[in-house]
Amino acid sequence: MNGILIVGLFVGLSLSIIVLAFVIWGIKTEQFDDAQKQNSGLLFDTADDLNDAINKENKKKQLHKS
């Protein structure tokens, strides 16, 4: 019985630490900085919009490479 309780305690703790890690990642990579843009970006999901998004990413990647 004690064993189950202890395992349960540490499994719960590990899961919540994983969630915390995601939140910290989100804050550090500015995922929450412009929530308005992120939210309304969901509305623009035509094939063209998605292609544009890929082009943008590619341009940025090139920038970081150079």
Binding site: D33, D34, Q36, K37, K59, K60, Q62, L63
Partner: peptide, 9 residues
């Protein structure tokens, strides 16, 4: 132009 990011807020 290689980067043009506009913050909506």
């Amino acid at each position: 132009i290689v980067q043009a990011d506009i913050n909506f807020s």
